[in-house]
Design a protein around this nucleic acid. Structure first.
Lengths: 200, 200
DNA sequence: GCTGCGCAAGTAGGTACTTGCTAACACGTC
DNA sequence: GACGTGTTAGCAAGTACCTACTTGCGCAGC
């Protein structure tokens, strides 16, 4: 890995841990194992370095899509949500820091963030289920999608912070989220016990 | 309001906006409209001041309880969730900052945080619904409670940050959350349109 | 006269960022 | 192989500012 990438990676790591103000050029340089001057030579200033690092890290998105023609909502949503959950969990420190710094440094974050895009594609999927007649309840996909996404988001953010609330098994919790969600939107849930667990 | 309380209030406000590192004694003193020296005379150090301010602010909790003997789950949950949502929204900047600083300053936050307590009391309420036979679905209250609480939490945190996702009316969203949740746990939802809106 | 507060000034350290100089390394040419 | 040359890196040192925190003095009110 070349020096520039090492610096960007170190910047993301330090920023995730201690935020913009805490991410001093010295700490970033040490984490990247380069001298502080090299850092300035490559990016000019701390602000430009962090902007590039955050923008790059912030645009990564999970890439398990929801099918255009839904066949098995339980299977689709389990795979999709498991992927989202894993992605959110892996980046939880980064996401928490971004949320806190958002108001102070709004220019740092790209407008179309991955969770927003994911929620929109979920809402579209729910509209397809409704049009198919698979989802029979009276619900608004633009409210249902943020509701499920919100539950996943809170799980990813809170499981390590509030362990007493999340003593349950992560995989079983995910399965129950989806089962409850399907009942909520009026999709009959298959009760066969042959479903295989989705590693999250 | 006496000087001490003014300083504590200012400390919470500044901390919520810019975090521990950004909350300099100068900024806090200015926000409280006292001299910086007064601040040190009262609290000794920046750390002790912020610890007291955060502990105090962090233990405030919404006080609309869930009934011991559930009669109308829709009404109960609407009132309770509306109260939780309002509470979370009003403190969103503070909560976001605390979440980000948690790992770096774990000693600042009290162990039994309000959202954790709220979620536990919700889980207990759901157990009562199940025991009553009002909630008929096969669900785990210790998973269902974090799911609803998570949706409320994400709504409170994300509505201002991702306005494109939350274009819907806040009150209508809350009502739909509860309606969907009740279907999810197998409680028959009254479809009468005479329900009055709950201001959130 | 004591308590609570402000003002002026200062200390010791951290922060972003700059300047000048040097060493290693990869080249194309003789 | 020897030789200049440009690139990329490090080191030493320094500037100007901000940070937490302290000391000493004065002043108003109960």
């Amino acid at each position: 890995m070349d020096v520039r990438d090492r610096i960007l990676k170190a910047a993301v790591s330090v920023f995730s841990e201690v935020g913009f103000r805490g991410a001093t050029t010295r700490r970033i340089a040490r984490a990247a194992d380069v001298s502080e001057i090299t850092l300035f030579r490559h990016f000019g200033s701390k602000g430009r370095l962090l902007q590039e690092a955050i923008t790059c890290e912030g645009t990564h998105a999970p890439r398990v899509p929801l099918p255009d023609d839904p066949q098995d909502p339980m299977r689709d949503l389990l795979a999709w949500s498991g992927n989202q959950l894993r992605h959110l969990r892996e980046r939880r420190a980064f996401i928490r820091t971004c949320m806190a710094e958002m108001e102070e440094h709004p220019e740092m974050l790209p407008p179309g963030s991955p969770p927003a895009l994911a929620t929109r594609s979920l809402a579209d999927y729910l509209r397809r289920l409704k049009a198919q007649g698979t989802a029979t309840a009276a619900f608004d996909p633009d409210i249902a999608a943020p509701m499920l996404m919100g539950a996943l988001f809170a799980d990813a953010m809170g499981r390590d912070a509030m362990p007493d609330l999340y003593q349950n098994d992560p995989d079983r919790a995910l399965t129950q989220y989806i089962e409850m969600f399907l009942r909520a939107i009026g999709v009959g849930v298959k009760t066969d016990s042959s479903r295989q667990d989705q590693p999250a």
